[in-house]
């Protein structure tokens, strides 16, 4: 169901955008760029999803429940936040790991804390791109002000959930 809703929304966005292309020159430029993006993305998606499937199989359920489950409490949230930055690769890797951990018994709040921490502090993003484009001071300032966010969001999520 989720997949269907997302497909309809993204599909409508794509059709609207196609409508904005004024003529054949723009359309063929768009197709060329799409093909290039596809060739870049497809191998990554396939390899990442396979990897996530393998690692979900290897995750020891007892340990996951013990370390990241609801009973783990604040320690579980802290561990989830610490694991976020260590996740290599793109968005699908972190979401797939979050889904695998949920299946193995991690608490929803831990999954939210993990995804938030990955979003803000992914070391791949910071070291490969942010430091070189933004410079050290801007990067450190952003990290510094963002540090409380995963904790605040996890606290609010555990209050609402």
């Amino acid at each position: 169901m989720n997949i269907l809703i997302g497909t309809v929304l993204i599909g409508s966005g794509a059709i609207w955008l196609w409508w904005q292309l004024p003529n054949d020159a723009w359309r063929s430029a768009s197709y060329r760029a799409s093909l290039d993006t596809f060739l870049f993305t497809a191998p990554r998606v396939i390899v990442a999803l396979l990897g996530a499937g393998f690692f979900a199989e290897l995750l020891p359920e007892d340990e996951v429940r013990q370390l990241l489950g609801a009973e783990a409490g604040i320690a579980g949230i802290l561990l989830a936040i610490a694991l976020g930055p260590l996740t290599p690769g793109g968005a699908f890797v972190s979401f797939a790991i979050g889904a695998a951990a949920l299946k193995a018994g991690a608490s929803p709040v831990a999954a939210i804390a993990y995804v938030t921490s990955w979003s803000l502090f992914s070391t791949t993003k910071i070291f490969a791109y942010e430091l070189s484009f933004m410079g050290r001071q801007a990067t450190l300032t952003r990290i510094l002000v963002s540090l409380p966010v995963p904790f605040v969001i996890a606290a609010m999520a555990s209050l609402t959930g």
Binding site: G13, A14, L17, W26
Partner: peptide
């Protein structure tokens, strides 16, 4: 969904 998303990600910057 991935196909449509790739089209958006490639076309919007143009």
């Amino acid at each position: 969904k991935i196909g449509a998303g790739i089209f958006i990600a490639a076309t919007l910057p143009i």
